[in-house]
């Protein structure tokens, strides 16, 4: 063993991939089509990599949505993952969900939960249930203090109320017929612990204290871009956090990286390897089509992935993806 910890703590993600024989990193298929349909959100979370918020106006046009539905019909695409912002704030969300549900594929909507209690959005809960949508709800912590430190005052009880409403219409029950998964991400400059341990703690606290249930917990590493980057900088944690991500690099996560099976579509129809690259404005860049109007499975399925140092967030420890840990 002759590793130099100093070098490991400072080298680039590309160097690290080269060292373990994974550079250039290539996609292996397009199994998940992830649609970022709006940057608008009712919350202003401190960790948000896309910097969504109430003042953002970007949203996918009906024309681009139709192109996404056409691409989603490709037989290799098994999962459509709708995200934002708060996708519920897109005026076409009900139409989009109904149109995509007709394809008979796994359909996910990522929700901040709180938005579902807004009078205009409340009916969407029934629309999601009727179309067998899997809901993935953000809940950074199962205790109010840490959760609200990230998402703002008053968000925790409203999230619990939304989960309770969802439980009432059949979401998050042990039979798993209507899936409600929750997302944990650290409320601070540290990495998440084991997903299994966190899930068990969430289940215990949420059941005992609030009487609500969910199916699975996805534990996500905060990516050092967007608003989280600003938080790290302002709090004096940036250097330590980047170093921590590098030191936690786990080569076993690379083959399972989400970008190798995902294509991310931005509000304007441009294509990205993942939602983080989208936030960093790094489009698909290997000669493959970079707009949904030119979607061509054959040229996108084995494209070279654009990697930068923020990718260390997905390879740290047990790894991280929109579906939780990787290893």
């Amino acid at each position: 063993m002759n590793a130099d910890p100093q070098a490991l703590a400072t080298e680039s993600f590309i160097d690290r991939l080269k060292a373990c024989g994974f550079y250039p990193l290539r996609a292996e298929t397009v199994e998940i089509l992830q649609l970022n349909i709006t940057r608008r959100c009712n919350l202003n979370c401190k960790h948000c990599h896309v910097q969504a918020g109430p003042s953002r106006t970007e949203r996918m046009s009906r024309e681009v949505l139709k192109l996404c539905i056409r691409a989603a019909a490709h037989p290799a695409v098994s999962t459509i993952d709708i995200t934002g912002g708060a996708p519920e704030l897109h005026p076409d969300i009900a139409w989009l969900v109904q149109s995509l549900a007709g394809l008979g594929k796994r359909l996910i909507v990522r929700s901040n939960l709180v938005v579902l209690l807004e009078p205009a959005q409340r009916p969407l809960m029934e629309v999601f249930a009727a179309n067998r949508v899997e809901l993935v709800g953000s809940l950074p912590d199962c205790r109010p203090e840490r959760s609200e430190r990230q998402r703002g005052a008053g968000t925790f009880p409203r999230s619990i109320e939304a989960i309770r409403e969802l439980n009432r219409i059949g979401y998050g029950r042990s039979d798993g017929s209507l899936k409600l998964d929750l997302v944990h991400n650290p409320a601070g400059a540290f990495l998440p612990g084991s997903q299994a341990a966190l899930e068990s703690e969430y289940r215990r606290i949420l059941q005992q204290r609030y009487g609500v249930s969910f199916n699975q917990l996805f534990s996500l590493v905060n990516c050092p871009i967007g608003r989280y980057w600003h938080y790290l900088t302002a709090s004096g944690n940036l250097e330590d956090y980047l170093r921590m991500l590098r030191c936690a690099f786990n080569a076993r996560t690379v083959e399972k990286l989400m970008c190798r099976r995902t294509l991310s579509v931005g509000c304007d129809g441009r294509l990205y390897d993942c939602d983080f690259n989208q936030a960093a404005d790094l489009t698909v860049n290997s000669g493959a089509p970079n707009h949904i109007q030119d979607f061509e499975f054959g040229r996108l399925a084995d494209r070279e992935i654009v990697v930068r140092n923020h990718c260390f967030a997905c390879t740290a420890g047990a790894g991280s993806s929109c579906q939780g840990s990787l290893a």
Partner: peptide
Amino acid sequence: THKCLSLGVA
């Protein structure tokens, strides 16, 4: 301390 924070220990 990091590990406890990571595991959601209050």
